[in-house]
């Protein structure tokens, strides 16, 4: 059990929060077959960046929390994974964890990721104000201008930018 002192930080477009998922059960796509709807709804599905999300379609209306692990800052698969999930109609929370930093926050938000989970170390190195500033840069978006604005760019709409 993680106590709140060591709990990770979650950052969304509004700023830092304590990780409110840390007490929820965590499971992977392999666990889905044996999972009841209640656990599915109360737990966190943890996805590896290589996951084929198209196989998850039957569970997408049950799940409420998806965490996508980024291997390292140079690995952008997680962004496509989030877009794919949004494209398939998944509308609840998506968070990113692992090797993702403040200069990728714009990318995360625009791809339909709601928040990034940070270690304490990362949160102290990358202060809250940098994340909030980065979130404002989503407003200038060529793709949205060209007709790509859609449900998959959800966070943009939520922020009313």
């Amino acid at each position: 059990m993680i106590d709140s002192n060591s709990a990770r930080i979650v950052v969304d477009a509004a700023g830092f929060h304590l990780d409110d998922w840390h007490k929820r059960a965590r499971f992977t796509p392999e666990d889905l077959a044996g999972l009841d709807a209640k656990t599915g709804a109360s737990g966190v599905l943890v996805l590896d960046a290589a996951q084929r999300v198209e196989d998850l379609t039957p569970w997408l209306n049950v799940l409420t929390a998806v965490e996508i692990g980024f291997d390292n800052a140079g690995d952008g698969r997680g962004f496509s994974l989030a877009r794919a999930l949004r494209g398939l109609g998944y509308a609840r929370d998506i968070r990113a964890s692992g090797g993702i930093h403040v200069d990728q926050f714009r990318h995360a938000l625009q791809c339909g990721i709601d928040a990034v989970i940070l270690t304490r170390e990362a949160a102290s190195r990358m202060p809250e104000q940098h994340w909030v500033n980065a979130a404002t840069t989503t407003a200038l978006n060529y793709q949205a201008r060209l007709g790509f604005a859609s449900a998959s760019w959800r966070s943009r709409e939520d922020l009313n930018l």
């Binding site: 952008g76 962004f79 625009q110 978006n141």
Partner: peptide
């Protein structure tokens, strides 16, 4: 030019 605009700052494809 259309592709310049489309590809500029595309959030999903900045870390191919």
């Amino acid at each position: 030019e259309l592709l310049r605009q489309y590809s500029t700052g595309h959030a999903e494809f900045a870390f191919l």
